[in-house]
Lab assay of single mutants.
Amino acid sequence: MAAGGDHGSPDSYRSPLASRYASPEMCFVFSDRYKFRTWRQLWLWLAEAEQTLGLPITDEQIQEMKSNLENIDFKMAAEEEKRLRHDVMAHVHTFGHCCPKAAGIIHLGATSCYVGDNTDLIILRNALDLLLPKLARVISRLADFAKERASLPTLGFTHFQPAQLTTVGKRCCLWIQDLCMDLQNLKRVRDDLRFRGVKGTTGTQASFLQLFEGDDHKVEQLDKMVTEKAGFKRAFIITGQTYTRKVDIEVLSVLASLGASVHKICTDIRLLANLKEMEEPFEKQQIGSSAMPYKRNPMRSERCCSLARHLMTLVMDPLQTASVQWFERTLDDSANRRICLAEAFLTADTILNTLQNISEGLVVYPKVIERRIRQELPFMATENIIMAMVKAGGSRQDCHEKIRVLSQQAASVVKQEGGDNDLIERIQVDAYFSPIHSQLDHLLDPSSFTGRASQQVQRFLEEEVYPLLKPYESVMKVKAELCL
């Protein structure tokens, strides 16, 4: 049975990233139509530049190519590739079939990587351009969430054990800070992308030097003109047959890092959902379990974690691919890159769409948070109580021993009897502590235990987050809708 299948058929496997999760716009960027249309555009740009620099290419040939950029006979191309065992030459023939007058000058002087690699770089750039505003929107939604809850005390956790208090907004800023680093890295790697350009079979530009009869300047002009037509500021000066596969490492490393950030955020949300302090959106008709109707599973956060793990592992592909590119190139890269580049971007696209949807509907339960604080705060307040007693004339050592005994009794009630923490009640009825009984409410005010959390939130948002989001103001209103 021949390899390949009808990918629109229910009898043929289709990647869930495309069929179930990723956005239509990201799927289109990695589609065959987008790819092969870009090949034709690159052939047109090459012909236009070659004509401008004096090669015998007519206006009629150029116009014929322009008129057929979208006229792609995919069936013919597939048949040609089956016959020739070469995808680029299959599309040269297919393009030439609908451009008979231009057929002889299509791909003039070029090698397969002229269309293959340059198209990949265009796709990487455009895919990054799709991700950047999506990530900015996630940051914006979380920034709104953090600002609104900047002063809401909550129990902090280290080692997932109760620690000092923080605020809900401050905790959210930990998430935002990681995503801001990801946004900066995505922008950097996007701006650092260079075009492969017009380089020939081993990167020496020998074929173009021959076409222009040894004119170095025209060869350099050709490279520059096509690079500018493709919208790049610069091209690699040095290439082998391909652009260095280190570029793929750079791009997928940034995406993998984004995956790590999203995994951490969504894990926190899942843990908070278990504590009943916070939940992701839950639709009115949504079913959490087929057997347990009360369940409210954090399905979206779980999906993000599941896909983020996949995204983090994909960076190993370009690392290994770059390491086995012998001399000017081997074909070890080809099949692998067809999979890992598309999957990385479709996965990143999915987790950003999902995280935006989550961040637009996060639900906080202040009463649950308050109750958990009441359970733990008495123990945390013991040092403040000791200091207040010393100020009232008591002995630190005597007070410490009193607190120690009462704390152990209260802990026994919590752990052995399943009761509430009654340390404060014990202190309130103990005559030894009568000098500070009137101060206990103040000493137990949760806001006095959150330090500068709310001020940190305000400063972080104003100095770091809002300036970073400013270039994306025009796209901030787009909502994230999930079908599944």
Rank of each mutant, 00 (worst) to 15 (best):
D182Y: 03
L179G: 05
K170C: 03
T242K: 01
L222I: 06
G361Q: 09
L128P: 02
Y243S: 15
D73E: 08
G393F: 06
E401T: 10
Q458H: 12
R171S: 00
T354P: 07
H97V: 15
T58P: 06
S323Y: 03
L484T: 15
Q325L: 13
L135E: 08
L346V: 13
R83A: 11
Y34G: 10
Q210N: 13
R85G: 01
T154F: 06
R188T: 10
Q428P: 03
V465G: 03
N297R: 03
T154D: 07
Q356M: 12
T382H: 02
I287Y: 02
D420N: 06
D223T: 07
A136G: 14
H442S: 09
K367V: 02
L108N: 11
Y472A: 15
Q356P: 02
E328V: 01
D191P: 01
P133D: 09
L53V: 14
Q416N: 12
I269G: 03
K199R: 04
R337I: 02
I369R: 04
E328D: 05
T330C: 15
Q325P: 02
H107C: 04
N421S: 10
N274K: 07
V475Y: 15
K134A: 10
L377E: 01
K470I: 07
Y472M: 11
F36G: 12
Q285M: 14
D248Y: 01
D420S: 05
E60C: 11
M89V: 05
N126R: 08
I123L: 13
A431L: 09
L69H: 12
K66P: 06
L255M: 11
N384F: 05
V92I: 06
E220N: 12
M26R: 02
S12A: 11
L124H: 12
I72G: 06
M380P: 00
A411N: 07
F379M: 12
A49K: 00
L155E: 01
L132I: 13
L142G: 02
L311P: 00
D6E: 14
G394D: 06
E277C: 05
N185H: 09
S19E: 14
C113A: 09
H437D: 06
L42S: 04
L307M: 14
W326P: 00
Q177K: 04
F36W: 15
Y13F: 08
R270Q: 05
L255N: 05
A77S: 11
V262P: 01
R300F: 07
I62Q: 06
L128S: 10
I176P: 01
R37K: 12
H442V: 14
A348W: 02
I249W: 03
K233D: 09
R270V: 04
R234Q: 09
L423S: 05
R188Y: 06
N353T: 08
V363W: 05
S253L: 10
L307T: 15
E383R: 01
L209R: 08
N384S: 13
T38S: 08
R372E: 04
R20S: 03
Q241H: 00
L275D: 08
T227D: 01
S474V: 15
R149A: 08
R33Q: 08
G394P: 08
H93T: 15
L211K: 02
H400P: 02
H400L: 05
L469P: 01
T166C: 08
K276H: 06
M387K: 04
Q439G: 10
E328C: 06
S23Q: 07
T321V: 13
G109C: 03
D248H: 04
C483D: 13
F232W: 05
D422F: 12
M387C: 10
P100G: 08
S323H: 03
I269A: 03
F460S: 03
L183A: 09
S9E: 11
Q325S: 13
P162V: 06
W43I: 01
G116C: 10
Y114Q: 04
A103V: 13
V429W: 09
Q286Y: 00
K470L: 14
L341H: 13
N336T: 14
Q458M: 14
T354D: 05
L130F: 10
T450L: 06
Q320S: 11
I369Y: 03
Q41H: 14
D420G: 04
L174F: 15
L484E: 13
G419P: 02
D191W: 09
F160W: 04
L444K: 04
K479R: 12
L132W: 14
P366F: 02
H217N: 12
C305R: 02
A230W: 03
F379H: 07
A90P: 04
P293M: 04
K170N: 03
I427N: 02
Q51V: 08
G214M: 06
H310I: 10
E463P: 03
I176S: 06
K134R: 10
L124Q: 07
A453F: 05
R426A: 10
A102G: 08
E376L: 02
N118M: 00
S261E: 03
G54L: 08
L468W: 10
M312I: 11
H86I: 00
I106M: 07
L209A: 14
R188S: 09
I287A: 10
D420K: 05
Q241E: 04
C98W: 09
I385F: 08
K134I: 07
V29R: 07
K75H: 10
R371S: 03
S207C: 11
H107R: 00
V465K: 02
C180G: 11
V465F: 04
K82M: 10
A22E: 07
K415N: 05
Q356W: 09
T154A: 09
A143F: 10
E383L: 02
V189M: 14
E464I: 15
S454M: 08
V219N: 05
E283S: 14
S151W: 10
Q210S: 14
T354C: 13
V414L: 06
R20P: 00
P471Q: 15
R196G: 09
T154L: 08
L319W: 02
F160Q: 00
N297S: 01
R374D: 06
C340P: 00
L252W: 03
Q184P: 11
I139H: 02
L193W: 05
D333M: 01
E220Q: 09
D120E: 13
V390Y: 06
A480D: 12
F433Y: 08
H442K: 06
F433T: 06
